[in-house]
Design a protein around this nucleic acid. Structure first.
Lengths: 237, 237
DNA sequence: CGCCTTACCTACTCGCCAGTAGGCTTACCT
DNA sequence: AGGTAAGCCTACTGGCGAGTAGGTAAGGCG
């Protein structure tokens, strides 16, 4: 119909390298997110990108390099999106809230990116997981710093750094998991989901820094190790 | 050294089928947990199991069947471990606490199982993810029911089921993520980690069902969508 | 003891996919 | 225009790994 088709069948229009590289990366993220690293084939990626396989190798190197580049690009995009949403001068709870909003906003608009980052990257044991774990670690440290900082405002004995880190890990994990759930239940807007998580974790943590600790009703405390669950390093009240 | 070695090199001692099947499954879980589904080869599994490849196929069918069987077995073991730790008559918070303890206890003693379940299964798009998502879904429903039930004790407008489900998803995700973190930081006993998560989520949820909702300080509320984060369906205070 | 069933093996086939050799074409530059 | 470099291709190789064919030992049982 259109005279748009290339002069020779199977010959793509000539484009500057930078543009092609973007196309290829987009295609790669798409395919990797749908199939995972191993199941994705370079043939399919090249097909989706609208070019032939040797171009892939000419521009982006091996399959592993391509994948690593995808992870790096998407991770950077996400971290920037979050950083742009947070003001360093705000009080901790507001910072956390802004971060959550930015995070869920990004996931909602970049589902493929999120799939690649969260599922694929973490399950491949190679240098990818490293790359990914690095970014994840930065996110956790950020949250941990926020937690430690916010507990400075109180006169509580101050939780250890390890403890803050583990709580931050739990929080980040809750965010990831909730994002996954959201992808399967997309009827609600990002803000609502973010708010829900904010309420869950902040109100919980708010009570913790106030020294308020949940305690099991003191009957048959120990079921398998006899440890007291409530007070660890905090005030034994 | 020992005269234990089989009569012919490369010939395994003859064993009844049930025993071999267990050996093979154990080997498979081990290899799958270390390498992931695709990277794991049937050759390696058979080697670890101490038998030859055709036995794998004779007893456990194809690679996919084998993997699915692994997932099912480990998932069942884990759900049973948790169910055994929880008494249905206890109040909700105690049930949750018992469940968390049982969960972290299981993970601590079955790291390979956990790896297979959490990382590998969820990232393969086949019928496995289904199997796994099913179990995960059951866990989430369980927690969600707990949450809904516990809010029945209060006179709060009662959160919707969808909301409870999403909170449960966040909670389960927090648990999974914290378990991963724990595997990298194994210096603390299971009970302490479980207690930490219990404090985080329960104290937080406790405030929620009491109608207590975090609210942003009312200045420049909207940063990207102008949505009020705090009250959704709950009391507008 | 001999027979047969069950457990077990070695040694292949076959398809898929990462990666490459070598050649054609089109746009820009002078 | 015509040279040349950058973009693009078809068509292969080579290896790895799933799955199988066909044969060998070993324990039970008459």
């Amino acid at each position: 119909m259109h005279a748009e088709q290339p002069v020779r069948p199977g010959r793509a229009k000539r484009l500057p390298r930078a543009v092609r590289e973007r196309q290829i990366m987009d295609a790669a993220v798409d395919v990797f997110s749908r199939l995972g690293f191993h199941a994705a084939s370079m043939d399919e990626i090249s097909e989706v990108a609208g070019i032939s396989k040797p171009m892939l190798y000419a521009y982006l190197g091996s399959k592993e390099e391509l994948f690593a580049t995808c992870i790096r690009r998407e991770a950077t995009r996400m971290m920037e999106a979050i950083a742009n949403g947070v003001e360093a001068e705000e009080p901790p709870d507001v910072q956390l809230w802004s971060g959550l909003r930015a995070f869920f906003g990004f996931v909602g608009e970049n589902r493929a990116s999120w799939q690649v980052l969260h599922r694929q990257a973490s399950s491949q044991g190679g240098p990818f997981a490293e790359e990914l774990a690095d970014m994840r670690g930065r996110a956790i440290s950020l949250v941990a710093a926020l937690l430690v900082h916010s507990s400075d405002f109180t006169n509580v004995p101050r939780a250890g750094d390890k403890e803050a880190e583990s709580l931050a890990a739990a929080l980040v994990g809750a965010g990831e998991s909730l994002a996954d759930w959201w992808l399967d239940n997309p009827q609600e807007p990002a803000g609502v989901v973010a708010a829900r998580l904010m309420n869950l974790v902040w109100m919980g943590f708010g009570d913790l820094v106030a020294g308020d600790v949940w305690h099991p009703p003191s009957r048959r405390t120990g079921q398998e190790s006899g440890r007291e669950p409530g007070p660890e390093k905090e005030a034994t009240s």
